[in-house]
């Protein structure tokens, strides 16, 4: 027993070391820098909580926070609804459902930056072309107004992640015991009742996983945001990650950005943990 314990730690050591070096150490450094007047090159003195006070006085951070929350709520809902819908479709028995699974999953294989540029082309060029043909003015100004920028991001996010989320739902849907559904059918439950009362509770763990994934992904979104709108027009579609990056590298206020990043980390951690806690409670054990 003792021997295998040494092996256990020995095998784990490289991973633990890597985790410490690339995750924990930078985190500790980052928290330390957020209390100084670091400018990216040198840090000369300790300034206490000054950076944290400044964070809440800058409009850009609060705007970005509000924008990100709106975005996260909408994209979590739409991604999960679409993902579950797709999963329900491809778990039906018909020809070509494997092909459809592949197709729906495909967007997730394209990198976020490239996706952003593809959708930028669709919104600006393709939408405008259709708008010119049908003479619909509202199709010609996509991404030029804050509203279209927001919906553009939500659509992009749903399109990219639905397929991924679908795969997880499929795994759980196929594990639902046929006997339970047949029993309910014999008891006279219709298709809707069977879905609500049998299938949904049985795939509750999938919700836990998927809500966590979509929630944290939409909060941390950066590359799609950068390539699709770059925060424009007039910084109205700037999400938290981008605001932090811009504070650090274009305004050169590294320490302030570090403080924002620490707050950002706390927010994402708090939201994700509460969500996992509450979703876990809803899961049924058989």
């Amino acid at each position: 027993m003792k021997k295998s314990n040494t092996w256990f730690w020995l095998f784990l050591a490289p991973v633990l070391f890597a985790l410490f070096a690339v995750v924990l150490l930078p985190l500790i450094y980052g928290i330390y820098y957020s209390f100084t007047d670091w400018n990216g090159i040198t840090s000369s003195q300790f300034v206490g909580l000054k950076n944290y006070m400044n964070v809440f006085q800058t409009d850009s951070f609060m705007n970005a926070l509000w924008f990100t929350v709106k975005f996260a709520v909408l994209s979590v809902i739409s991604t999960n609804v679409i993902g579950l819908g797709l999963a329900l479709i491809v778990t039906q028995k018909f020809k070509g459902n494997n092909f459809l699974r592949t197709v729906f999953f495909m967007p997730n294989l394209i990198g976020g930056l490239i996706l952003g540029f593809i959708w930028q082309f669709i919104y600006i060029k393709a939408f405008a072309a259709v708008g010119n043909m049908l003479d619909v003015a509202s199709l010609k100004t996509w991404l030029a107004t804050p509203g279209t920028g927001f919906w553009g991001l939500v659509i992009l996010m749903s399109w990219q992640y639905s397929g991924y989320i679908m795969v997880i739902y499929i795994a759980y849907l196929e594990n639902v015991d046929r006997e339970l559904i047949e029993a309910a059918e014999i008891d006279g439950a219709n298709i809707w009742q069977r879905f609500i009362h049998i299938t949904l509770p049985m795939i509750a763990p999938a919700f836990t996983v998927n809500l966590f994934l979509t929630l944290s992904n939409s909060f941390k979104l950066y590359d799609q945001n950068l390539s699709l709108t770059a925060g424009g027009p007039y910084n109205s579609t700037q999400m938290l990650a981008m605001d932090i990056y811009n504070t650090a590298f274009s305004s050169n206020q590294m320490a302030l950005a570090q403080a924002k990043a620490v707050i950002f980390f706390a927010i994402v951690a708090a939201i994700s943990l509460t969500q996992v806690y509450f979703s876990k409670k809803r899961e049924v054990e058989l």
């Binding site: 030029a144 107004t145 424009g232 027009p233 007039y234 910084n235 811009n246 274009s250 305004s251 050169n252």
Partner: peptide, 20 residues
Amino acid sequence: PTGWGMNTLGADIQQYTSGK
């Protein structure tokens, strides 16, 4: 000033041309 040209003035010009 750092970031002033693009993030302040540039963004404000975007607001101005959008009529905001």
